[in-house]
């Protein structure tokens, strides 16, 4: 197999790419060898060598602890629990949260056989103590909320305050188009104006 075929096959494994789009990407890279392909290869090599999970929160960074855990401006008494890194990045984009994070690496799943020992939960519990707040920013799904309740139970003896994200009408959402579950949650979580 030629180097080009290997490149196409590897590119085809990336999310969003199939064999045809991988071929297009490979051709594009080869056409822009100096301007794109070489820097991309160097960047990938550098990232593969340097990026590692933070031993405290599970975030990915070139330093351990990660930049978020090392930032003295962030509130160390508030920890936001997320399922994976994409959720952490989504919350960071809001710039509304100035505490620290904890990445679980998944949720409890009966079907996939994911149990508590497969997730980064034990490390989370060691980070908690009295006077701290734990925000459970997990998906509003059966698996996400099952995980949230499990963590809330485990966190109870630590004395930390546990909260979770609100559920309800999204910004720009029209009631007519919302499913009844979301509307029920929104009604239950209504607040005074």
């Amino acid at each position: 197999m030629s180097e080009l075929d290997t490149l196409i096959q590897l590119l085809a494994r990336l999310p969003g790419l199939g064999p045809r789009s991988a071929r297009r990407a490979a051709l594009h890279l080869i056409k822009r060898r100096e301007g794109l392909m070489m820097p991309l290869a160097a960047a990938m090599q550098g990232a593969a060598a340097a990026v590692r999970p933070c031993s405290q929160c599970g975030n990915l960074d070139t330093m351990d602890p990660c930049a978020i855990c090392r930032d003295p401006e962030r509130d160390a008494t508030v920890i936001c629990v997320v399922e994976d890194l994409a959720d952490l990045w989504a919350l960071e984009r809001t710039a509304a949260f100035r505490g620290r994070y904890h990445v679980l690496g998944g949720t409890l799943s009966a079907l996939d056989g994911v149990g508590p020992e497969d997730l980064n939960i034990s490390r989370l519990i060691t980070r908690l103590g009295p006077g701290m707040e734990l925000i459970l920013a997990l998906n509003a799904t059966v698996e996400g909320q099952t995980t949230a309740h499990y963590i809330a139970d485990r966190a109870e003896p630590t004395g930390a305050k546990v909260s979770r994200l609100a559920q309800g009408v999204p910004i720009g959402g029209e009631l007519d188009y919302l499913d009844e579950g979301t509307l029920t949650a929104a009604l239950n979580a209504r607040r005074a104006l």
Partner: peptide
């Protein structure tokens, strides 16, 4: 096509949510 969204009603109740998840997993 959704007929009744039962799961959403139990998301806040750990006991009922655990029972629903257990029954569904057993049947599966």
């Amino acid at each position: 096509e959704l007929t009744r969204a039962h799961a959403a009603r139990f998301l806040d109740d750990p006991g009922r949510l655990a029972a629903l998840a257990s029954a569904a997993a057993l049947l599966a």
